[in-house]
């Protein structure tokens, strides 16, 4: 069974990061929410993502783009306290989107310990066992957690709307160039 057609969990501090930057109904209680203040110093709660599934997806790409990964063993050992569940009902409709991300992770990862042929096979077939499925999910989370760390590190420093706008503007420039 596909790893992207069933409930999955984000655990530990990464679950807290997800809660911090999402606005939707995210299971569990987080320590804090992301806040921004305006020019008058008025602070208001804000969000970067409407749903945990969208943040997980974005974090996967960002981790891959920034080369930020959490070691597999660390991922496996993350405490499960305060998990955020990504329900199958949310992830399945985005399954092909997640498969593309996963395939890109596997094919570009020369350190995965698999030949090209094996990597091609891996991205072509569903895991044949539950254990293989778990391993694939943990592998997927190495990038996702790295991306979450990057997001948190970056946006923890963004405390005002002005900073957010400036940051977004810079990202925009990265995509379209200075002239846009």
């Amino acid at each position: 069974m596909s790893i992207f057609s069933k409930d999955q969990k984000i655990s530990g501090k990464y679950a807290d990061i997800v809660r911090k930057y999402t606005s939707g109904n995210v299971s569990g209680q987080g320590p804090e929410k992301w806040n921004l203040s305006d020019d008058d110093g008025k602070i208001s709660q804000q969000f970067l993502f409407k749903a945990a599934v969208d943040m997980v997806y974005a974090a996967g790409w960002i981790g891959l783009a920034e080369g930020r990964r959490v070691p597999l063993e660390e991922v496996k050992n993350v405490t499960t306290k305060g998990d955020v569940t990504i329900f199958a009902g949310q992830i399945t409709p985005r399954e092909s989107r997640f498969w593309t991300l996963f395939r890109c992770m596997v094919l570009s990862d020369d350190g995965i310990g698999l030949s090209i042929e094996e990597r091609v096979k891996k991205i072509s077939l569903d895991p044949t066992t539950k254990e293989q499925g778990n391993d694939d999910w943990y592998y997927f989370l190495t990038y996702v957690y790295g991306g979450l760390e990057f997001i948190d590190e970056t946006f923890s420093k963004v405390t005002t709307y002005t900073q957010l706008l400036r940051f977004i503007s810079n990202l925009r420039c990265e995509v379209v160039g200075e002239d846009d």
Binding site: F49, A58, W61, A65, G67
Partner: peptide, 23 residues
């Protein structure tokens, strides 16, 4: 920035386009 079921958000797209370039 966030995106949703129908649309991939700008943050994910920024990450994806950068990942395609960097990987």
């Amino acid at each position: 920035l966030s995106g949703d079921l129908g649309t991939v958000g700008f943050l994910a797209l920024w990450g994806a386009s950068k990942a395609v370039r960097t990987t």
